[in-house]
């Protein structure tokens, strides 16, 4: 570390100023304000000024069965998408990292294109493709192979998995590219060192590649878990949480409470619970990565 004097240190804060000024005004203050509001009854339709209600909003959530269903669905969504995305993304990256493969750029581009499309647009396309009725493109194709049409977004067991399929499809390329970057960063010499030993490619992966990819894996895991807990748009567009509450997630619940029922206090309470969960999870994951002696910081 370069030795610095105090005057220079003041300069550092000026580097931080623009970014953190914006954080302060547009994120941190709103967060504090939201926390404050979570202790109020604040229906922007029926009352003009918020009324202090203490913990009543939080108690309401404990009592509301739908909130618990949405928590369960969100957890299901996270567990069902993040590992799958990561596994498939890694697999795709391994395949595309082969030295002897041609048209790499072409395949990489094909895999990545879904990432660049807006979620709103692609959810609408998905909704039409997985339409359970006689016009559903996927069902028509399945029937050509003699497979019975499925209920997709209209089946309470399949609605959420259909959305999960979309998310996996869309994010696969993103995770692949990050893994690919991680793989390319591993120096060839490491593999060359064992080239003469009789090791299987599986062993090579397990003992060399996988440990070296750990920082990549942790980075993806942390950011993907945070993202997935906040899933909203595809569900909003495709199922509106139904059938029943079978695809309602936490942020969908929050949206319903806050922007459809205008219960801002309750919505803020939901947001806070979600925030705390994400904070704890991230700290845990961070600790885990530190314990394995790979620094995340």
């Amino acid at each position: 570390m370069i030795v610095t004097n105090r005057k220079e240190k003041v300069g550092y804060y000026l580097f931080l100023l623009p970014a953190y000024l914006i954080f302060a005004v547009f994120i941190f203050w709103p967060v504090v304000h939201s926390l404050y509001l979570s202790f109020f009854k604040y229906n922007i339709v029926t009352i003009t000024s918020p009324q202090f209600v203490g913990l009543r909003n939080y108690l309401y959530l404990l009592k509301d069965e739908v909130f618990w269903i949405s928590c369960k669905n969100t957890l299901f969504f996270v567990i069902g998408t993040v590992p799958v995305k990561m596994f498939l993304g890694l697999l795709a990256a391994m395949l595309l990292n082969r030295k002897d493969l041609k048209f790499k750029a072409f395949y990489r581009t094909c895999f990545y294109i879904p990432v660049v499309v807006s979620m709103v647009a692609i959810s609408i396309v998905w909704m039409l493709l997985f339409n359970p009725g006689p016009n559903g493109v996927v069902n028509i194709l399945l029937s050509k192979f003699g497979i019975q049409p499925l209920g997709w977004i209209a089946d309470s067991k399949l609605a959420l998995p259909t959305v999960m399929l979309l998310v996996i499809w869309k994010d696969l390329g993103y995770i692949m590219v990050i893994y690919l970057a991680g793989l390319m960063a591993i120096p060839d010499e490491i593999y060359e060192a064992v080239a003469l030993d009789p090791v299987s490619s599986w062993q090579k992966f397990w003992y060399i590649t996988w440990p070296l990819l750990k920082p990549t894996t942790i980075f993806i895991l942390i950011t993907q878990v945070i993202d997935s807990f906040q899933v909203f748009t595809p569900i909003y567009v495709m199922t509106e949480g139904g059938p029943g509450y079978s695809s309602t997630t936490i942020v969908n619940y929050l949206y319903d409470k806050g922007f459809r029922e205008y219960e801002m206090g309750i919505a803020c309470a939901v947001a806070y619970l979600l925030f705390v969960v994400l904070l704890v999870l991230t700290i845990l994951q961070n600790k885990l990565s530190k314990a394995e002696e790979v620094s995340y910081d």
Partner: peptide, 21 residues
């Protein structure tokens, strides 16, 4: 009603009607 009616978009029913289904 057609399969998937439990949570189908209204536009879909309109389309099916237009298709005489």
């Amino acid at each position: 009603s057609m399969p998937g009616s439990v949570n189908v978009n209204l536009a879909e029913i309109q389309k099916l009607f237009a298709q005489e289904k």
